[in-house]
Simulated assay, not measured.
Amino acid sequence: MSGMADTATPALDLRFHAKIHGEPLMALPQDLYIPPDALEVFLETFEGPLDLLLYLVRRANLDILDIPMAPLTAQYLEYIDAMRASNLELAGEYLLMAAMLLDIKSRMLLPKPPREDETVEEDPRAELVRRLVEYEQIKRASQVLDTLPRVERDYEWTAVQIAIAAVERMPDVNLADLQSAWLGLLQRARLNSHHHIGRETLSVREYMTEILRRLQGNDYVEFTALFDMSHGISSLIVGFLAVLELVKERLVQITQNAPMEMLYVRLPEHGTEPEPLAA
């Protein structure tokens, strides 16, 4: 039992004021200075004299269009005196508003002399009421705007980089390019042609089937490689008509690497191999 008594936890001493670096502070230092206003707390903060007036009106549940100036002026001056007692530097606009309230109060207390005309004298509070109503509307609008999502407060901007693969676009082949290639082909055929007498039957459909068969398995075929110079002009004409028919039916495409260069014939880009045409 004696061993258990020795290892028991010592009772906590609740008489110290605080702990500094783990050591209890049993008494406050004699030279400790606490300013008189160190523990003062301001519960309301105002952004200007209109904000203070609107706060007083709403706190007292007064009609903003029919403000009793005497109690409102008294409460305003009490706040001004409290702010002065707290060693706060009052802005000139607060003092100007106090003077305006006193002026309105004095004008309302003075007796009104009879007027010969029937015009109604303007209420001395009209300008103050107008400013309070405008300020309240602006304050409510600012509160609504403050509830909207704001960049760098509610969310952050981000950027996402999307890589787009560049698609190589070949130059378009126009009618002049096709005509130039055809005239060059005829010129070469005349230079290599021989005079033959005979009759032969030429079919455009057969030439179309032959051209499609030659294009299968090849990415590109030169335009001139589709024609056989040794068969004469008639064969070239029929072959050229076959190429035009294939282009018209979108079974082949004619392209070139750059303007004014060699023409190439290829199957459509979708890669499907068209079936041979019937003769």
Rank of each mutant, 00 (worst) to 15 (best):
G232C: 02
H231C: 07
T158N: 10
E152P: 01
P259R: 11
M83H: 01
H17M: 04
P268T: 00
L236P: 01
L12Q: 13
D13R: 05
A159G: 10
S2V: 13
L244I: 10
D228N: 06
Y33G: 04
S142M: 02
F16R: 06
T45V: 08
G92W: 06
L185C: 08
W182P: 01
P68I: 02
S2I: 13
A38K: 08
S193F: 03
F223E: 07
L96K: 11
L77E: 11
T9G: 13
M83G: 00
E40W: 12
E222K: 15
S180F: 08
E23S: 09
E200Q: 12
A82V: 05
Y55G: 11
D6A: 12
P10H: 04
D154N: 05
E261K: 15
V129A: 03
S193E: 03
E118M: 06
I138T: 12
T201A: 11
A85W: 09
D66M: 08
R213N: 13
M229Q: 06
Y220A: 09
A85M: 05
G92L: 12
S203T: 01
L128G: 01
T224W: 08
P49G: 12
V238G: 07
V173P: 14
R213L: 14
A176F: 14
L54Y: 15
Q161I: 11
L96C: 10
I67L: 12
P71F: 03
P10W: 09
L236C: 05
E40A: 12
Q143W: 11
I34A: 05
T224R: 12
A60Q: 08
D219Q: 11
S142I: 00
L101Y: 06
M97C: 09
V265A: 05
D66S: 09
L77T: 09
M208D: 01
R169F: 10
R107E: 05
N61D: 09
D37K: 05
H195K: 11
L43V: 15
